[in-house]
C-alpha cells in the first residue's frame, strides 16, 4: 500500500509523459521527414503510411517504457530526492537522459564506429544528471520553468496518443489478416 501511495498522480504523470513523447516522437519524425522525400520516389502513400504506423507504434512503446522508468525512480528514490517535485524532476530527468541518448545515437554514423568513450562514461554522466535533476527541483525558478514547459507539452499528447493507438491497431490488423 505504501508503494502504491508513492506512485505519482495522473496530473503529475501527464506533463512528464508529454515531455518524453515530445522528445521520442520528435526524433523519429525528424528522421522520417528526412527519409520521406526519397521514399516518394518509389513508394505510394499507403506504403509510406505503413512505415509511419510502425514508427508511431514503436514510439508509443518506447515512450511508455521511459515513463515507466521515471515513475519507478519516483517510487524507489526517497520522496525528498525525486517525488517531491515530480513534474519538474521527472521532466528534467527525461529531457537530460533522452538528450544523452540522442547524442549517443547521433554518434552511430557508420557501420563500424562505436562511441565507446561516451558509453563508458555514461554511468558517471547519469549520476551527474541525477544531481542536476535534484538541484533543478530545488530552485524555484527552474522548477517553475520546467513545469510550465511540461504543462504546455501536453498538447502533443492529444495528437501523438490517438495517432499511435490508430497505428497500433493498423499494425495489428496488418499482421493478423
Amino acid at each position: 500500500m505504501a508503494i502504491y501511495n508513492r506512485i505519482p498522480k495522473k496530473q503529475e504523470i501527464l506533463p512528464v509523459y508529454a515531455v518524453i513523447v515530445l522528445m521520442i516522437y520528435g526524433w523519429t519524425i525528424l528522421k522520417f521527414n528526412y527519409n520521406v522525400t526519397g521514399w516518394l520516389y518509389f513508394l505510394n502513400i499507403g506504403e509510406i503510411f505503413g512505415v509511419f504506423t510502425y514508427s508511431m507504434t514503436v514510439n508509443l512503446l518506447e515512450s511508455l517504457l521511459v515513463l515507466l522508468g521515471v515513475i519507478a525512480a519516483g517510487v524507489v528514490l526517497p520522496k525528498k530526492w525525486f517525488g517531491e517535485w515530480f513534474v519538474a524532476r521527472g521532466a528534467s530527468l527525461s529531457m537530460l537522459v533522452l538528450g544523452l541518448m540522442m547524442y549517443i545515437a547521433d554518434q552511430f554514423n557508420t557501420k563500424q564506429y562505436y562511441p565507446s568513450e561516451i558509453i563508458r562514461w555514461s554511468p558517471a554522466i547519469l549520476v551527474l544528471i541525477g544531481f542536476v535533476v535534484y538541484f533543478l527541483g530545488r530552485i524555484q525558478r527552474t522548477r517553475t520553468a520546467i513545469e510550465f514547459f511540461a504543462d504546455r507539452a501536453i498538447i502533443f499528447l492529444y495528437i501523438a496518443i490517438p495517432v499511435s493507438l490508430i497505428s497500433l491497431v493498423a499494425v495489428l490488423i496488418r499482421n493478423i489478416f
Partner: peptide, 14 residues
C-alpha cells in the same frame, strides 16, 4: 529505417 545501421537510428530507445 528505425534500426538501420550506418546512420543514427530513427528509433531513439530501441
Amino acid at each position: 529505417f528505425l534500426f538501420q545501421d550506418g546512420s543514427p537510428p530513427a528509433s531513439l530507445v530501441f
